[in-house]
Design a binder for these strands. Structure first.
Length: 161
DNA sequence: GCCACCGGTGGC
DNA sequence: GCCACCGGTGGC
């Protein structure tokens, strides 16, 4: 969803993690901040069939000013729609590399094991009958968001080693 | 050319 | 010895 409409995005600040989760209204195109990653993932999981609109946020309508503006005061990264919701007990993490060249995605399992790929997830579930019954590999995705180059400050982007 | 994946390692 | 982080690559 690079076209700037109806896409969901989250943000990073100059640290290496995402600190604001945000979605764009499919009607007025304003950005609405979503308080938690969990809520963001819920919206994202059905975004294609069920686009976000301002009125889904309690007490908010398209008449209200945007929560946040898409500009270079923050670095923005854009998720693909319909990524699976992270299974209960797991945590999905995205880490920005220092040079902003790419992000890394991993899941932390309930017992603290870090999973770095679908292959590792599959092996983990095979060894964990307690999860295998109701958690599938397809509940995980390592698809990375697109880093919006136009929101990276020039002094940072052009940093030479 | 991109990206999912994984090996290596430096710093703790 | 671990693990956060980075580089490289194979497959598409």
């Amino acid at each position: 969803m690079e076209k700037g409409q109806q896409s969901k995005r989250h943000l990073v600040n100059t640290s290496n993690f995402i600190d604001i989760w945000s979605v764009q209204c499919g009607e007025c195109f304003k950005w609405r901040v979503i308080p938690t990653q969990e809520e963001f993932e819920e919206i994202r999981s059905t975004f294609a069939e069920d686009p976000f609109v301002c009125s889904k946020k309690p007490g908010i309508s398209c008449d209200d000013p945007a929560d946040i503006e898409y500009d270079d005061s923050r670095i923005w990264v854009i998720d693909k729609p319909n990524l699976p919701k992270t299974p209960a007990g797991f945590r999905r993490k995205l880490v920005m590399r220092k040079d902003f060249s790419k992000m890394d995605c991993y899941y932390d399992s309930p017992n603290g094991k870090r999973l770095r790929s679908l292959a590792e997830v599959a092996r983990f579930l095979d060894k964990s009958p307690e999860y295998e019954e109701d958690i599938l590999v397809s509940d995980f995705s390592f698809t990375l968001p697109k880093i919006m180059e136009d929101t990276i400050p020039p002094d940072v982007a052009k940093k030479v080693i």
